[in-house]
Design a protein around this nucleic acid. Structure first.
Length: 480
RNA sequence: CGGGAUGUAGCUCAGUUUGGUAGAGUGCUUGGUUUGGGACCAAGAUGCCGCAGGUUCGAGUCCUGUCAUCCCGACCA
């Protein structure tokens, strides 16, 4: 026992000791990723990819429900195309990867590997949008993009990452703005209802906007270590891209007009958010909606007559009810299996042994709080389904509680410094709207502006930095 | 891109100071005993010592370069 305990401690670095190492241990030991020989490019292993597939499936359904269609753009962008919108190219140029040869032929024009696909969509919209009848186009694609980051971390910042990028084009600014807001809402619902991650919706400040956008909205989540993670973004472009790319449509009154565009995206970073929101010192903790395995069945005294048959029966029954269930029939010891599936964050574990079978029950253990309760085999499916919902609610409540405990309202830079000296977290503080103050707060506290929350609070009358009249409340925090 | 650390078996690492036959634990394979919180015994397999140069009779060990990973900053989903 003592030996076993030591092993488990060795298995993973405690969160409080070294949060970054804890994170790295989890992504490797839960078999989410493997490194490759190219910096910042990782193998997303089956267990990690299965989480992404669940994210995709749910989000894709939400996109379809709101009228979007999937398309697929090429991964190469000619340099001249990338350069059509000035702010956009300036924002992305430093981190694009280039292709200059096709086979052994030097290309006449070098091609950039897409860091994002606004330019490709615009080039296409130019050809297919001519009339108000052609609008809107509500497109999305699930692809990978490349950004040549200097420092990389699995899921949080890799050079190639998987994402979805929605690109829509509308007749009017109002419609486009409504779309931007709608998709921010979709992301918020998804994070809260499927990932059990509470988020703050807000607008980015001018300095933090997406390259080429009129306005950028984002959802911000607070990780377990008190750092902020941007979990999704939604941009309104106005007609700037349309002008740069020459996209025009004839309106009902036969005048030529520039359409208005949006784009929005979430990435595999969401998996990083799940890890850092719900994980603990025993490993990953997955929200049931995206867990590749929702229920693992661990038979005890597996060799005893009837145990395996019963376990298989239970497995089939849960599977028939649409639950993602796995029965582990390997000859590893039960203790090994407990630790293994805890590491992998499986939300619910069922233990079935001779004693349980005799009592017509099994033991149901929940990963997030370690509780074990006996449940009757007669109503097992219902019990498991109810428990999965309970787990989700418990995860969400705990994450919300953590955010609440770590959100500080500050009226001066000194108060911010004092709050962050205790523990990193979100700072709610007023801002005059001046970029110099934004920079000053970051320089003095380490906390940058995360967003201007849609839900505003009145903390004070004056800017936290310069003391001039405040325009709005800003959410500040140290960021990933 | 600056500062620091590390690359040796699938994994964690020792060996580098003082150059001389490639090591341990764990995992893996096989057989047996086990199985209600990471079981035990026995036998076996596994190495471009990150990569490229150099010094040397001889390099895991010394020198130069390079690549990757981790941490801390600046930039970013």
């Amino acid at each position: 026992m003592a030996k076993n305990e030591k092993k488990m401690v060795d298995a993973i670095t405690p969160m409080d000791e070294d949060f970054a190492q804890w994170y790295t241990d989890i992504v490797k030991k839960a078999e989410l990723i493997a490194y490759t020989s190219v910096k910042g490019c990782m193998v997303i292993r089956p267990y990690g990819y299965a989480i992404w597939e669940n994210i995709q499936r749910i989000l894709d359904g939400m996109f379809k429900e709101t009228g979007h269609e999937n398309v697929n753009m090429p991964m190469f962008i000619p340099e001249s195309l990338l350069q059509k919108e000035k702010d956009h190219v300036e924002g992305f140029a430093p981190e694009v990867a280039w292709v200059t040869y096709g086979g052994n032929t030097k290309l006449e024009e070098r091609l950039c590997v897409r860091p994002t696909s606004e330019t490709l969509f615009c080039d296409h919209y130019k050809d297919i949008v001519h009339s108000y009848r052609d609008l809107p186009k509500l497109y999305n694609q699930w692809v990978s993009v490349v950004r040549w980051e200097k420092t990389t971390r699995p899921f949080l910042r890799s050079r190639e990452f998987l994402w979805q990028e929605g690109h829509t084009i509308h007749a009017t600014a109002e419609e486009a703005i409504a779309e931007t807001e709608q998709m921010l809402g979709v992301y918020t619902r998804f994070c809260e209802e499927s990932l059990a991650i509470p988020v703050v919706q807000g607008k980015k400040t001018e300095s933090d906007k997406f390259a080429g956008a009129v306005s950028t909205y984002a959802i911000e989540a607070l990780m377990h270590d008190g750092k902020a993670l941007q979990a999704g973004t939604s941009h309104y472009f106005g007609d700037g891209f349309a002008q740069a790319f020459g996209i025009q449509y004839a309106d009902k009154d036969n005048t030529l007009k520039y359409p208005h565009q949006t784009s929005w995206g979430v990435t595999t970073r969401l998996i990083g958010a799940i890890i850092m929101t719900h994980g603990d010192n025993n490993g990953l903790v997955l929200p049931p909606a995206v867990a590749p395995i929702q229920v693992v069945i661990v038979p005890a005294a597996m060799h005893k007559e009837g145990v395996l048959d019963k376990a298989r029966g239970v497995c089939a029954q849960l599977k028939a009810a649409g639950i993602r269930v796995k029965l582990d029939e390997t000859d590893n010891s039960p203790g090994w299996k407990f630790a293994e599936y805890e590491m992998k964050g499986v939300p619910v574990r069922l233990e079935i042994g001779p004693r349980d079978i005799a009592a017509n029950q099994c033991i149901l253990a929940t990963r997030h709080n370690g509780e074990k309760t006996p449940v009757s085999l007669d109503s097992l499916t219902e019990s498991v389904q109810a428990k999965l919902q309970e787990v989700h609610d418990g995860l969400y409540a705990a994450a919300l509680e953590n955010r609440k405990n770590r959100t500080y309202q500050c009226r001066s830079i000194e108060e911010i410094q004092a709050a962050l000296a205790e523990k990193d977290g979100f700072i709610e503080a007023m801002w005059c709207g001046d970029e110099a103050c934004e920079d000053e707060v970051k320089a003095q506290t380490g906390a940058g502006s995360r967003c201007i929350p849609l839900e505003q609070k009145h903390i004070a009358d004056t800017c936290v930095c310069c003391g001039k009249p405040a325009k709005c409340m800003v959410l500040w925090g140290k960021a990933y």
